[in-house]
Every structure is written in C-alpha cells, then in structure tokens.
Design a protein around this nucleic acid. Structure first.
Length: 424
RNA sequence: GGAGAGAUGGGUGAGUGGCUGAAACCAACAGUUUGCUAAACUGUCGUACUCGAAAGGGUACCGGGGGUUCGAAUCCCCCUCUCUCCGCCA
C-alpha cells in the first residue's frame, strides 16, 4: 500500500499517479485520508501524554511502597482513576482511527509510473514489440479445443466429473507436454540466474494481504472451508511472502527466485463463448519469476525480466507481441506492467501468456520487506514478478500454430523434454 | 488424534510483579594497537509511531489477542506455532 509519509510529501505526484489508474474521486479521497491521519496523530499525542502521566504515577507508587509510605501510596492510587478512564478512551479512539486510516490505504491502488500511458482499457495499451511470423493455416485448421479431442490429450469432460468446469485432465502426450514445459521453463530460469523454490500452494490471510490479494479481492481466490487458508491464484503470493517481515542484507540483493505451482482462480462471472478450451481455466500451471531489488534498480530489472520472457517465446518459436499496459488496464498493486501475448493462429487471437510487473514499494510496504541502506537507514525494497510462463495458452498456441496433416509438431527445444517430436 | 514442555533482541540465553527496552556471551560494525593477518582492548549495536532545527525526549512492542493490577516479559484466559513421547500414516 501507499505510505502516508509519501502522500504527505509528494501529494501531487501521487494524485496524478492514482488518476492515471482511473481511481474515482482521488482528490477527495486523499484529502479525507490526510485529515484522518492528522486526527490519528493528534490522538496519539494526547494518548501518549496520558500514558506518560500514568507511568510516572505508577513509578512513584512503587517508590513510596518500597519506602514504607503506605498511606501516601494509597492516596496516589485514588487519583489515578480518572486518568485511567481518559487513557482507555483515548486508546480506543486511537485504535479506531488507525484502523480507518489503514482501511483507506487498503482501498487505494498503487500509482501508475509516469511513463505509463493514459487509458481506460485494453484498447489503450501500447504495442511495444511484435516478433515471430504468424503462420498461415489452411481453412481446415482446427482450434485447440478440437485438436485436443482429435488427439485425445486433454479431457474437459473428465475434469467436469471429478471437479467441475475449468479443471481439465491432461492425458498421454498432453500430460507429458505439460511436464516438458514446466521443466523447460525451470531449467531456463536457473540458467538465467533465478534460484528455484518450491512453496506451499495454500496460503494464510497474512500472505494474501502482503501481496495485495486481500482485502476485497477474495473473489479471485478459492478459500478453504474452516481453515482460513486460500488456494494461491499465482506463485507470486507464496514466493514474495517468503520475504515478509524481513530486513534483507544489502549484499544479498537482488533476490531472484523462480517457482512452479499450479494456480487456482475462481474467475467468477467471467465465462462465456470467448473463453473456450484452454483460454481460461480455474486451475492451471505456471512458472513464475520474482525479483526483489533496490529502488534504483527495479526498472532495469523489469526490462531484464521482459527480455527473459521474450527469449522463452522465441525459443518456443511462437509469434508474440509485448504490450505496455495503460493506467486503466493495470492491476491494483502494479506501478508498471508489460503483458506478453502469443498469437494463436486458428482462433486468430492474441492470448496473454505473461504479465511482468514492477510493484515498487507497494507490496514491500505491506510486507515490511526492507534492507539497511549503508548499514544504517532502513529502506523499503521494490518487488517485481512475471509469468515465465503460464502454460495453458502456450499449449493452445503450440497446438494451433504447429498443426498439419500429420499431427502437431513439438517445438525443437521441448523435444528432449517430451521424448517425442509430434503429437498424432 | 492423546500426553507433556516451550515461544525473550541477528544468534545462544538470563529474567516469576516496579530500579528491565530488557543481563551476559557470541556475531556484526567503528576505532586503538600491529609490517600484514590474527589476537587483545575501547566504543556502537532492535523496530514503529511521535515531539524537536538539532541535541535529546515521549509512547508502544519479550509468538498473537484479551484480562487482573496503581504497575505485567513476569499472574490468569483464548489462539497460533515449535519441541519431546505415544498413536496413525505418504
């Protein structure tokens, strides 16, 4: 979340960044927030002064009792009653006001970086790069949801039976292709200097707050009944939360992690004809890269992560484009996001397969993720993450783009992982 | 799942009602000494909010929450987690 101190000192810049995110009534919200914080501050001053008085008297009572002046001590006790009531009242008020301020901060998204384009939705995103050649398929080319039936590699009906819609079952070469992609992505990330971690795929609510899924976005996550746990929507949550409440050693920076996890998303209300087949699922596999850097290095790290993701798509020989998201299309917690989309040639659609974001200090502030600058000043770090990559839409594009009369060609880089070069 | 023990600063660990934001030791950092290294010695060494130009104050925090008390790391209650033993088990 944003920091009050920044809102105070850099108010205009923050208002500008929030407006770009299309936040309603920004000026009024900020004014209200600052007013609440002023209330918080003055309440705390008063409360601290009262506590100080109480502490002083208590110490005096202790001294009196030790010196055997019992009467004087009893008398001191009698005058403490009013003060205690006052103190109690002030502390209760302080708690309320603090909670109000926190709630207001939770409701504010991250500000958009100054170079993020203005815009309200997907149409305003800026295409930065387009690479690879789009295959020209014959009219008989099939969309992936027909290919998976034809070659019997993914079964939605079976998934329906055991779980529900959006939980596919991968079979035979389909299952092997999944495993090949996961291993390929993990090996590539290791080569690029990311340390592999394997985390839990259920997280507690503290972790949900840490990375910004909570509060208010419960609709995205599946909750586990009676356990106060959630199935992760992305490995971003457990991996980034590894560093919650940590003061990192300066020499350990930057931190670079990669992890494979299944991801679970409720996607409430987002179903329809446009999300057939693998285009949108409740459970899918993803390899995620996370980076934690000093403020001055984070935008360099963002570009570097994008370049890494692009290299994966090139190796898979998939045509792709890179978008810089406009303010209105970005996620709540992000300061800048690039999306990578592959072209799936039979359904003639661009499919998002990666989202690479810099959260600056927004998550770090919630996580209390910091380092000691020059061994002295404690400073918030910047967090970043990106998909590298999300599997289902990669699979969809591979199936559609590589189909021919003999079957589906497996990209060369994957063949040593799959053990076959064609699905037929 | 049953029984017991425990959770204190970067680490080990003392502390069972006031003089304890917290001993001691280790680690770390700065300095003195030294031809270099080591050793020795001296000093510094939690976080957040807040007042102050600064120096320096105030408040809170000893797993989390609540309670008793003039006063709680210390007593009581609830929760979480860890360890040991038993049971079960991939």
């Amino acid at each position: 979340m944003l920091r009050i101190v920044d809102i105070k000192t850099d108010k205009e810049k923050i208002i500008k960044g929030l407006k770009k995110k299309r936040v309603a009534d920004v000026d009024a919200q900020i004014a209200h927030l600052l007013q609440m914080d002023e209330d918080r501050r003055s309440t705390q001053l008063e409360s601290d002064a009262t506590l100080n008085e109480l502490n002083t008297i208590s110490k005096q009572i202790g001294t009196l009792l030790k010196n055997g002046q019992k009467e004087a001590a009893e008398q001191a006790k009698t005058q403490i009653g009013d003060l205690k009531n006052k103190s109690k009242m002030l502390q209760d008020k302080l708690k309320t006001v603090e909670a109000d301020v926190l709630q207001a901060l939770y409701n504010l998204p991250n500000t958009a970086h100054e170079t993020v384009p203005e815009g309200v939705g997907a149409d305003d995103n800026k295409v930065m790069l387009e690479k690879g050649s789009i295959p020209s398929l014959p009219d008989s080319a099939l969309p992936h949801w027909e290919l998976i039936e034809k070659y019997n590699i993914i079964d939605f009906e079976l998934g329906n039976k055991i779980s529900g819609a959006g939980f596919p079952v991968y079979k035979g070469k389909g299952a092997k292709l999944q495993r090949a992609l996961i291993n390929f992505f993990l090996d590539e990330a290791a080569k690029a200097g990311f340390d592999e971690v394997q985390t839990p795929i259920v997280v507690n609510s503290d972790s949900g707050y840490g990375t910004g899924q909570l509060p208010d976005k419960e609709g995205q996550m599946y909750g586990i009944v009676d356990s106060n746990l959630f199935l992760i929507p992305t490995a971003e949550v457990p991996i980034t939360n590894l560093y919650r409440d940590v003061i990192v050693k300066e020499e350990d920076l930057p931190i670079r992690n990669v992890g494979y996890t299944p991801c679970f998303r409720r996607e409430a209300g987002s179903w329809g004809a446009h999300v057939r087949g693998l285009n949108r699922l409740h459970q899918f596999d993803k390899v995620e890269i996370v980076q934690i850097t000093k403020a001055e290095n984070s935008y360099g790290a963002l570009e570097e992560m994008c370049a890494y993701v692009e290299s994966l798509l090139e190796k898979l020989e998939l045509p792709f484009r890179k978008l810089l998201l406009c303010g209105g299309d970005m996620g709540f917690t992000s300061a800048m996001t690039y999306d990578m989309e592959v072209y799936s040639a039979a359904q003639k659609k661009w499919l998002e397969v990666s989202s690479v974001s810099n959260f600056e200090t927004y998550q770090a502030n919630r996580l209390k993720l910091r380092y000691k600058e020059d061994g002295k000043k404690i400073t918030l770090l910047h967090t970043l993450n990106g998909s590298a990559l999300a599997l289902p839409r990669i699979v969809a594009a591979i199936l559609e783009n590589n189909q021919n009369e003999h079957g589906i060609n497996v990209p060369k880089v994957l063949q040593k992982y799959t053990g076959f070069d064609r699905i037929d």
